[in-house]
Design a protein around this nucleic acid. Sequence first.
DNA 1: AATACGCGCAACCGCGATGCC
DNA 2: TGGCATCGCGGTTGCGCGTAT
Length: 329
Amino acid sequence: MSNSDEEFRLRRGPWTVEEDTLLIHYINCNGEGRWNLLAKCAGLKRTGKSCRLRWLNYLKPDIKRGNLTPKEQLLILELHSKWGNRWSKIAQNLPGRTDNEIKNYWRTRVQKQARQLNIDSNSKKFLEAIRCFWMPRLLEKIEQSSSLPSSSSSSSISTMEPQNSTSPPQETNNVPIKLNNINPLNEQSCPSIYSPDLPQTLKWQESHAQDSPFYSMKISQQPEILEKSASFYQGFAQTDYKNSILDDCYHVDISNFDMEGFNQRAMSEEGSDEFLLSETQIAVGDWINDDMEATFWNMDELWQFKKTEEVVEKRPKQGILNPLPPTFQ
DNA sequence: AATACGCGCAACCGCGATGCC
DNA sequence: TGGCATCGCGGTTGCGCGTAT
């Protein structure tokens, strides 16, 4: 290959520091846009497309680096349930995060769990699993971090979210996000988590939870689990969750945030006569314990479920509301 | 110590949408 | 109105690194 061929051949692959510097300097002086022209004028042997991607996903000053916080993960799960693979749209609601990053998160973390559970990640069943097992853990984690003193709270988040030393500190406050009542699984939504009327909620649960692929039990059979569930949600209601938890990072209107239904469904199912601790559930345990940042579930609880199942199996059946779908048996 | 394997993430690719001439 | 360039999005690939064997 001649020197001139070499000179005009477009570069591919990882960007060098020199290329980054050229791109940043050019954009600082001339702004973004006209990427093909920009690539030429900046002296970069890259396509305009490559320059744009490098800038938007990596070099732009407001890019936030490091692990996604539980709040961000919760938002991703929730928004994905609403919008599907609309990564750029989801990213608009996570300041400093790129569509690429969110997409990678979904593919590497979330879809991985679907594989482990042997469930299609696009299936209702998997959505339900997310809502029953994963999101409640995130909520708990968010609540835990928010209940710490502000200094330790922020430090606990910052330990999960190492800032790139070259990036400026990120301001994530006052980002308008509205989480509406999102319930892709049931047309009719669950009662709000603010509802003080827990028995009513449970009634709702009894009448609607059959829609759930997990559901096949009578709620009244496991009072200790109901008690746990009740205190958990009453706790949320009492702490003015709306203002204190998510809102400290994002302005999130969760007044209709549909957590109660699936949480109670999850809690109840675990104590179900009919819901056996299947391989699927064990896989859930693996999933949750997979890595520290994704751990919103603990083995104690899983073993508690298992014990509950063992006890329950010895008792006479009190009724079958709905058989489990084949994959859950 | 060497090799295989799996994972996370940056980068690339294809394609449809949009704007301009 | 058609052709071309550019933009932006979602899907996919492949490299680098850590871990297991």
